[in-house]
Lab assay of single mutants.
Amino acid sequence: WEITFERNGKRITVRTTDHRLLELFEKLWRNGADERELERLAEEINR
């Protein structure tokens, strides 16, 4: 799966075969987690 999240013109794409990681990322994104931390998390998930 691949999903791109966008907020205030900032886009972060997450790619993984584990839908649970996408759900976790989406919850953090929707709850306003720090964008720098989300970028780092996305990099780890995308590996």
Score class of each variant (00 low, 15 high):
residue 3 I to K: 15
residue 35 E to F: 15
residue 36 R to G: 14
residue 2 E to Q: 09
residue 15 R to E: 03
residue 7 R to S: 12
residue 29 W to R: 03
residue 7 R to G: 04
residue 43 E to S: 08
residue 26 E to D: 08
residue 38 L to I: 07
residue 28 L to Y: 09
residue 38 L to E: 00
residue 31 N to P: 01
residue 18 D to N: 13
residue 41 L to A: 05
residue 9 G to S: 04
residue 26 E to K: 09
residue 12 I to W: 14
residue 26 E to M: 15
residue 19 H to R: 15
residue 35 E to W: 15
residue 1 W to F: 12
residue 35 E to H: 13
residue 14 V to C: 02
residue 12 I to S: 01
residue 15 R to P: 01
residue 16 T to A: 10
residue 32 G to N: 10
residue 44 E to P: 00
residue 40 R to C: 10
residue 40 R to Q: 14
residue 27 K to R: 13
residue 38 L to K: 00
residue 20 R to C: 01
residue 2 E to S: 04
residue 44 E to V: 09
residue 6 E to C: 08
residue 43 E to G: 06
residue 7 R to C: 05
residue 5 F to E: 00
residue 36 R to D: 15
residue 23 E to C: 11
residue 46 N to A: 09
residue 29 W to N: 02
residue 30 R to P: 03
residue 5 F to I: 13
residue 34 D to E: 08
residue 21 L to Q: 11
residue 17 T to M: 12
residue 45 I to R: 00
residue 34 D to T: 12
residue 28 L to F: 10
residue 13 T to F: 05
residue 33 A to E: 08
residue 2 E to V: 09
residue 45 I to S: 02
residue 28 L to K: 09
residue 41 L to K: 03
residue 42 A to G: 02
residue 43 E to A: 09
residue 5 F to D: 00
residue 25 F to T: 00
residue 7 R to I: 15
residue 18 D to S: 09
residue 8 N to V: 02
residue 38 L to T: 01
residue 39 E to R: 07
residue 27 K to P: 01
residue 16 T to M: 03
residue 4 T to Y: 05
residue 6 E to L: 07
residue 26 E to N: 07
residue 14 V to H: 00
residue 28 L to S: 09
residue 43 E to C: 03
residue 31 N to C: 07
residue 38 L to M: 07
residue 43 E to F: 07
residue 47 R to T: 14
residue 10 K to S: 11
residue 3 I to A: 10
residue 28 L to D: 01
residue 31 N to I: 07
residue 37 E to S: 09
residue 47 R to M: 14
residue 37 E to N: 03
residue 38 L to R: 01
residue 28 L to T: 09
residue 45 I to K: 00
residue 31 N to F: 05
residue 2 E to F: 09
residue 35 E to M: 15
residue 22 L to W: 06
residue 7 R to M: 12
residue 14 V to F: 06
residue 23 E to A: 14
residue 33 A to V: 12
residue 33 A to N: 05
residue 12 I to P: 00
residue 2 E to L: 06
residue 18 D to V: 05
residue 34 D to Y: 07
residue 39 E to I: 11
residue 23 E to H: 12
residue 16 T to W: 04
residue 22 L to Q: 04
residue 35 E to S: 10
residue 34 D to L: 15
residue 8 N to G: 10
residue 20 R to V: 11
residue 39 E to A: 06
residue 11 R to E: 11
residue 26 E to C: 04
residue 45 I to H: 01
residue 6 E to M: 09
residue 9 G to V: 00
residue 17 T to P: 04
residue 11 R to N: 08
residue 9 G to W: 01
residue 19 H to L: 15
residue 35 E to N: 08
residue 39 E to C: 06
residue 42 A to Q: 03
residue 31 N to H: 08
residue 30 R to M: 13
residue 31 N to S: 15
residue 34 D to H: 08
residue 1 W to T: 09
residue 43 E to R: 06
residue 3 I to M: 14
residue 3 I to N: 05
residue 38 L to Y: 02
residue 31 N to W: 06
residue 40 R to A: 15
residue 19 H to N: 10
residue 28 L to H: 09
residue 18 D to Y: 03
residue 45 I to P: 01
residue 25 F to D: 00
residue 45 I to W: 04
residue 15 R to V: 11
residue 41 L to F: 13
residue 23 E to Q: 12
residue 30 R to G: 07
residue 30 R to N: 15
residue 10 K to M: 13
residue 13 T to G: 01
residue 8 N to I: 02
residue 23 E to L: 10
residue 14 V to P: 00
residue 10 K to H: 14
residue 42 A to P: 00
residue 19 H to W: 15
residue 22 L to T: 02
residue 29 W to T: 03
residue 28 L to A: 15
residue 39 E to S: 09
residue 11 R to L: 13
residue 4 T to I: 11
residue 3 I to R: 14
residue 25 F to W: 04
residue 36 R to W: 15
residue 37 E to F: 12
residue 26 E to I: 15
residue 22 L to P: 01
residue 23 E to V: 12
residue 36 R to S: 15
residue 33 A to Y: 10
residue 1 W to Y: 13
residue 14 V to E: 00
residue 21 L to E: 05
residue 19 H to C: 06
residue 47 R to G: 15
residue 5 F to Q: 00
residue 11 R to D: 05
residue 35 E to Q: 07
residue 4 T to N: 07
residue 27 K to D: 12
residue 44 E to M: 10
residue 15 R to L: 06
residue 17 T to V: 08
residue 8 N to D: 11
residue 15 R to A: 09
residue 22 L to A: 05
residue 30 R to K: 14
residue 25 F to N: 00
residue 21 L to T: 06
residue 44 E to R: 10
residue 44 E to C: 14
residue 38 L to P: 00
residue 21 L to P: 00
residue 4 T to S: 09
residue 35 E to T: 11
residue 2 E to K: 03
residue 11 R to G: 07
residue 17 T to I: 08
residue 11 R to H: 12
residue 45 I to F: 04
residue 14 V to D: 00
residue 21 L to I: 09
residue 40 R to M: 14
residue 19 H to T: 11
residue 44 E to W: 15
residue 43 E to M: 08
residue 42 A to L: 12
residue 14 V to R: 00
residue 4 T to F: 04
residue 1 W to E: 05
residue 30 R to A: 12
residue 33 A to C: 08
residue 11 R to A: 13
residue 12 I to D: 00
residue 40 R to K: 13
residue 40 R to W: 09
residue 17 T to R: 14
residue 16 T to Y: 05
residue 25 F to M: 04
residue 33 A to H: 10
residue 37 E to V: 13
residue 12 I to M: 06
residue 19 H to P: 13
residue 19 H to F: 15
residue 18 D to W: 03
residue 5 F to T: 01
residue 11 R to M: 12
residue 19 H to Y: 14
residue 9 G to Q: 03
residue 7 R to N: 05
residue 35 E to L: 15
residue 18 D to M: 04
residue 15 R to F: 10
residue 28 L to C: 07
residue 43 E to N: 09
residue 5 F to C: 05
residue 30 R to F: 13
residue 6 E to D: 05
residue 27 K to G: 08
residue 46 N to M: 07
residue 38 L to V: 02
residue 43 E to I: 07
residue 20 R to S: 13
residue 10 K to N: 09
residue 12 I to N: 00
residue 24 L to S: 07
residue 32 G to V: 03
residue 45 I to Q: 01
residue 19 H to E: 10
residue 30 R to H: 11
residue 47 R to P: 03
residue 29 W to V: 08
residue 24 L to N: 06
residue 30 R to V: 13
residue 17 T to Q: 13
residue 5 F to P: 00
residue 13 T to C: 03
residue 9 G to R: 01
residue 21 L to D: 07
residue 24 L to V: 09
residue 21 L to C: 06
residue 25 F to Q: 00
residue 34 D to P: 10
residue 26 E to W: 14
residue 41 L to S: 01
residue 8 N to Y: 02
residue 31 N to A: 09
residue 30 R to I: 12
residue 1 W to K: 08
residue 12 I to E: 01
residue 31 N to M: 13
residue 5 F to K: 02
residue 33 A to S: 07
residue 8 N to W: 02
residue 4 T to Q: 06
residue 17 T to S: 14
residue 17 T to D: 12
residue 40 R to Y: 09
residue 26 E to P: 00
residue 43 E to D: 14
residue 13 T to R: 06
residue 42 A to H: 02
residue 15 R to C: 04
residue 14 V to L: 14
residue 12 I to C: 02
residue 20 R to N: 12
residue 14 V to M: 04
residue 5 F to Y: 13
residue 1 W to M: 10
residue 18 D to C: 06
residue 21 L to S: 07
residue 46 N to P: 01
residue 9 G to K: 02
residue 2 E to R: 03
residue 6 E to T: 08
residue 17 T to C: 11
residue 35 E to R: 03
residue 46 N to S: 06
